[in-house]
Write a protein that binds this DNA or RNA. Structure first.
Lengths: 181, 181
DNA sequence: ACGAACTTTCAATAGTTTCTGAAAGTACGA
DNA sequence: TCGTACTTTCAGAAACTATTGAAAGTTCGT
C-alpha cells in the first residue's frame, strides 16, 4: 500500500475535486493530473483505461487542456496515434491560465465598469452619485489586479516578488522540518 | 434611457454572470451587486422585488454573503426587520475571500502534496522519481502562491506591490484619457 | 485514391446544482 | 408568556452541466 499507484489515484482524485473551485470540469482536471503522474506521454487508450472514462470524454478533456496550453498533442512520425504530453513547466501553464482568465473576465469587466462610470457621471441624483463612487472603488481595485496580472504575464512578477516572499516562506518551512529531525 | 436604473440592471446581470467564474452562485452575486447599487441598506422585501427572486433565495444568498464577510446584517432598534448592508471596503472583502479560499483550497492541497512527496521519497522506481519531481515543482509553485496570499492577508501586499504596479497602470490610463480630450 | 486506424463530434442521458415556496423557527413588543 | 412580524430551512422542481457512445470526420501508409 501507498505505492505510487495508490498515490497517483489519490492525486488524480484530489486534483479533480480542486478543479471545481477553478471552473475546470472534474474530468478535465483528472486527465491533467493523470498525465502529470505518468513518466511518459500517454495515448488516449491508456487514459481511458487508467481513469475509466469514455473515449469521447478523454478527447473533450484533452481538447480543453490543449486550449489552456496545459497539454501538447503529439503525433509520432509513422503513426495515426496521438499522444498527450502534459506541460510540466507550471509557471508557463499558469501564465496561460492567467492570460485566458484576464481576457475573459477582467478585461470585459473593466471595460463595462468604465462605461457605466462614464454614464453615471452625467447624472446628478444622490443615488447615482453613491453608486458611481462604489463602481469607482471597484474599478480601482480591479484595475490593480489587472495590472498585477499583466505584470505577471510580462514575466517579471514571479521573479521580482516571488523571490522575497519565497525566501521568507522557505525559512519558515525549513524551521519546521529541522525541528522534526 | 441609460438612467441609473438601467445601469443598475446591467451591473447586476453582469456581476451575476461573473460569479460563475468564481464559484459564487449567480443569485448570490446578483444580490451583492444589487446592494452595492443602492445608496442605503435594503431589507429582504426590497431585494425580492428588485431582483424578482423568492424570499428563500434572498435569505440563502444573504447568509452566504455574510459568511464571506460581504454583507452585514443589521437590525434596527425597535423593529423585527433586518436590513442588509454591503461591505463597500472592497479590499477588506477581498481579504475575506482570499483567506477563505486559502483555507479551503491551498492549505489542504499543500498538506497533501507534502504527504505524497514524503511517501514517494521512500520509493526507488524511475516512475516514482519522475512523479515526485513533478509534485515537487507543483509544491514550490503552490507554496509561493500560498505565501503571497498570506502576505496579502497580513496587509502589506497591496501597499508594497500594488503601488509600483498601480503607478505604471495609472500612467498608461492617463495617457489614453488625455488623448481623447 | 482507398481503406484502416485512429480521433472528434454531438444528441441523448445521467448527474448536479440552484431556486422555489410552504412550513418551521426566532425575536420582539405588550 | 403570547401573538405577530419577520427570517430561515428544506424537500422537491427546474435549470443547468457533464458524460457517454455511436456516427462522422481525419490522417496516414500503400
Amino acid at each position: 500500500m501507498s505505492d505510487s499507484a495508490s498515490i497517483r489515484h489519490d492525486f488524480v482524485q484530489f486534483w479533480g475535486s480542486l478543479g471545481s473551485y477553478w471552473g475546470i470540469p472534474p474530468a478535465t482536471a483528472r486527465v491533467y493530473a493523470w498525465l502529470i503522474s505518468q513518466p511518459q506521454a500517454c495515448n488516449a487508450d491508456a487514459i481511458v483505461e487508467g481513469l475509466e472514462m469514455s473515449r469521447g470524454a478523454v478527447s473533450m478533456a484533452a481538447r480543453e487542456l490543449r486550449d489552456w496550453g496545459l497539454v501538447h498533442v503529439e503525433r509520432s512520425p509513422g503513426s495515426r496515434q496521438v499522444v498527450y504530453r502534459p506541460e510540466t513547466d507550471l509557471e508557463l501553464a499558469i501564465r496561460n491560465i492567467v492570460e485566458m482568465r484576464k481576457r475573459r473576465e477582467w478585461d470585459p469587466l473593466l471595460a463595462r465598469l468604465r462605461g457605466w462610470i462614464g454614464e453615471l457621471d452625467g447624472q446628478r441624483s444622490a443615488e447615482a452619485e453613491v453608486f458611481r463612487e462604489r463602481l469607482r472603488s471597484i474599478e480601482a481595485l480591479v484595475g490593480m489586479a489587472d495590472a498585477m496580472a499583466e505584470s505577471f504575464l510580462k514575466g517579471g512578477l514571479v521573479q521580482k516578488l516571488g523571490l522575497k516572499v519565497l525566501v521568507a516562506s522557505a525559512q519558515r518551512r525549513r524551521g519546521k522540518k529541522e525541528g522534526k529531525r
